[in-house]
């Protein structure tokens, strides 16, 4: 289990290289990186709160489920917390497999479960004030796909 929760930024290229290491049996490496977006032009920062005692356990549980369901050679989740500005990286998942189908599906699965089963909460700080981001019903419905 290599999942991490951290305040500091991460380097996607470095993480993917470390995940591959010297292995030559990986045929497909899928990466998703989530970024702080500012679509209206008024976002000052996104604050991510988490439940330290539970977060890593939740990430490891999600990762174990992915490893059990798909034939993965490697799997990684990194999720940040703290105050992040527009354009900054929030989190990444990476999955490695012999073939692309397993890698894509597992990455999609990881993202769906991270959205609503990992104990993180986002608060948006805009020019007009601050408010918690509401969970989307669609995110909860997305879990039923799996």
């Amino acid at each position: 289990m290599v999942s991490r929760v951290q305040e500091k930024d991460f380097d996607v290229g470095h993480e993917l290289a470390a995940l591959r290491g010297d292995r030559v049996d990986i045929g497909a490496l899928v990466n998703f990186t989530g970024l702080v977006r500012d679509t209206k032009g008024d976002l000052l920062a996104l604050e991510l709160e988490h439940y330290p005692g539970m977060t890593l356990k939740a990430l490891q549980k999600i990762e174990s489920e992915a490893v059990a369901r798909w034939d993965l050679q490697a799997c990684l989740i990194i999720h940040r917390y703290g105050r992040l500005e527009p354009g900054q990286q929030i989190m990444m998942v990476a999955t490695a497999s012999a073939h692309r189908k397993a890698a894509f599906e597992a990455a999609d699965f990881l993202m769906d479960f991270l959205k609503s089963r990992a104990p993180f909460w986002k608060k948006e700080h805009t020019r007009d004030g601050s408010d918690w981001v509401a969970a989307k019903n669609a995110d909860e419905m997305a879990l039923k796909r799996w």
Binding site: L114, W121, W132, A135, E140
Partner: peptide, 10 residues
């Protein structure tokens, strides 16, 4: 025991 709103990770 922990109480919190629906999670918004990712």
């Amino acid at each position: 025991v922990a109480f919190f709103p629906p999670m918004t990770g990712g």
